[in-house]
Design a binder for these strands. Sequence first.
DNA 1: CGAGAATAGTTTTTT
DNA 2: ACTATTCTCG
Length: 757
Amino acid sequence: MVATEHILQDLNPPQREAVTAVEGPLLILAGPGSGKTRVITHRIAYLVDQEGVAPWRIVAVTFTNKAAREMRQRVFAHLGDRALDVALGTFHSICARLLRVEGERIGLQRSFNIYDDADQMAVIKRVTEALNIDPKKFSDRAILSTISRAKSELVDARTYAAEARDYFAEIVARSYERYQALLAENAALDFDDLILKAVTMLQEHESIREKYEERYLHVLVDEFQDTNLAQYELARILAGGHGNICAVGDPDQSIYSWRSADIRNILNFERDFPGARIVLLEQNYRSTQHILDAAHAVISGNRQRTEKSLWTDRGHGEPIVVFEAYDEGEEADFIAGEIARLTGVEAGPGDPGEPAWALRDFAVMYRTNAQSRAVEEALIRAGIRYQLVGGTRFYERREVKDVLAYLRLVHNPYDMVSLARVLNVPGRGIGTKTVQQLERWAQALGVPLYTALQILVAQESPEKQQSRPPQAPRHPAAARQAKAVVEFVEMLDELMDVAAKNNLSTLLDGVVERTAYRRYLYGEFDDGEQRWENVEELRNVAAEYDGLAPGNGLVSFLEDVALISDQDTLQEAPDDAPDAGRVTLITLHSAKGLEYRAVFMIAMEEGVLPHVRSFDEPAQLEEERRLAYVGMTRARERLYLLRAFKRYAMGASQHNPASRFLKDIPPELIAQRSAFADGSPATTAGRYREPARVDARPLVPEDAVFSGGEKVRHPRFGEGIVVSCRVANGDQELTVAFKGEAGIKRLLLSLAPLERL
DNA sequence: CGAGAATAGTTTTTT
DNA sequence: ACTATTCTCG
């Protein structure tokens, strides 16, 4: 009983209900910051400790691996080692594990590789080329995403073809079938297949279904608003026997409909699970009331929602700061300035009674990845450390992908995407022409590329080969290329041998050694050293799997790497970190589930947020609004909404009006700031006020604008004459010719203590 | 075959 | 503006 007290102690009444309602279906509608993760982890602890449920009979699904890890840690705090037995992971990782164990029953090879987006593109490209589909009329991307959507709705190629009505659907139907055939030949599954195959396997094989229905007594699903139909179906099947399913979500935070997330899952929950209990979590423990009110004002603009009002007892806090910058440079400089001011790098200590600000307390959020650039530049200029979440991802770097492709090949040599990638990397004289010839030859033989290469080896060395005289038509490669292929295949064989007997990092070393990969990087690329460091970094990751048995290490590693998400790369500096961490730069999508003391949302402009491509679809516009809501509710104490009068995008300068979301925020919640003197940005009617220059705090005093020919004095360099002056990122870069030894200097106006003479 | 130039497409979000 | 792919030449 003591333990119960402990588990339920610091929960509010609805939270407590959500934790203790263990029988039957339960839907928890949890507003941002309402202690959702807490409820899930406490519920698991309660099930184990109070209800006597064995940990391994609980399955909990999260959206990212990071969330899963975090949840595991928090369950660990309650249950200790028993937490390790809870089946906890993302839909994709859980399905991958399921398919590794049971997949052979549905004809899956145990060593299947998982294809990411780029791999999928490579496959679909082969498909559309083979089918002579004009890429100008139907882009590979469009076809692929249609296939993906079909899969997430549990529509297989056959069904899709039967339902295809228009010409595009015809094209997709043909591609879909071919695409699946090619994946099968490659012994590969794409992301959607992981879910789809797991579901169909459970549907069609009663014995397997019963096994898992029986095993899992309780099913928990986090971020339920972002599940697609296939994922929902999986959860439903697992909960089939007992109906003990607990789904946690917030319709207002549904931002992944483009990834086939289906908000109807929440609406259907009550229909599919009659008698489902519903618990609303409305008390917010994260943000100030001002932030909640502003966020509520924005989300209230959506028609398709059920009202849920958030409240806090944390007080009103500071007003929301809306800042109008001239361009994205100034916008970014403002952020750097605020961070510097609050962390006291520039000024004295912060407000009394307020804990000191550290870099880890700040996040900058944006709609598209490309927007991080200006912010990064400003932070670098200001000497502020930051971490970029997502962006150019580590696992998408060329050198990393190359080495991974070798490892994937060792694991599954039929993976033709990986094979084609590294057959001539590092260059071994097997050019595109030869590869094409070989691929065509393999196709004519009706065998996977790897098998074809093996036949080639056999044909090249008849003396070693008595058992099976080569009946296949002779390979088309020229002597020199054939020799290179033989060497490649032999190398691969050796590596497979290494893999069977050694741990993962030894295998990786073997790959790098035998391909002379380091020499290749240094020889081919100017930034070879940097690239080599990335390979070393990959090796560090691999070394974490050295404890596993030879085969298992490779499988787990490849699986984890394939299913890694942007958020998973997020570093969190512990509160007592000596360096106070870093500022986080992150997209609004990736920011879901996170929180920061201060949040800067940039580019609050029509066309950016809401994004221009959402304009013609009311449903999409509502999703943009939810995205804004998600961003705003990440903030605990301070929320800054920024916009720029002028912004460069795709090479051209744009003038975007203020976002409609800004206008939805009651003016009394806002402290307006503006740094530019123009005074005439696109004015729009509404409650939103255009910048008043009242409390402007420009980084560069307006009277400090210099022009050529003016005389100035610098404390160190002495007197000089301004040669030129150009505007750069809201600052001005001056070229000054000083008298005497100093000579010609370039100075930033904001930094240089210049005095006009 | 490889290197460098020309050109096309891209940018909304990602497991 | 930037990257990735295709084209062209040595």
